[in-house]
Amino acid sequence: MNVKVLGPGCANCSATVALIEQVAKAKGLDVTIEKVEDLPSIMSYGVMATPGVVIDGSVVHAGGRPTQAKIEQLLGG
């Protein structure tokens, strides 16, 4: 599974990356996490409120740090 966290390096973005890593590890999932920080890429996903989360190419979350429950649900497994 490929997970991208979109956001220009704000505190919430790093927190989101850390949370996803933590959930993926706890679930033993094979997840590659990418941070996407450049504006044209962020906008190309249509994310206007960061952090946004993209899983396998589709935007699944935008605007604020997702809760742990939400991440667990998004990652499935």
């Binding site: 956001g7 220009p8 704000c10 505190a11 919430n12 504006l39 962020i42 906008m43 249509g46 994310v47 206007m48 409120a49 960061t50 605007g63 604020g64």
Partner: peptide, 13 residues
Amino acid sequence: PFCSCSAVPAFIG
């Protein structure tokens, strides 16, 4: 729900 850290993407959008 909006954080001013998203001001730039929101502006462009």
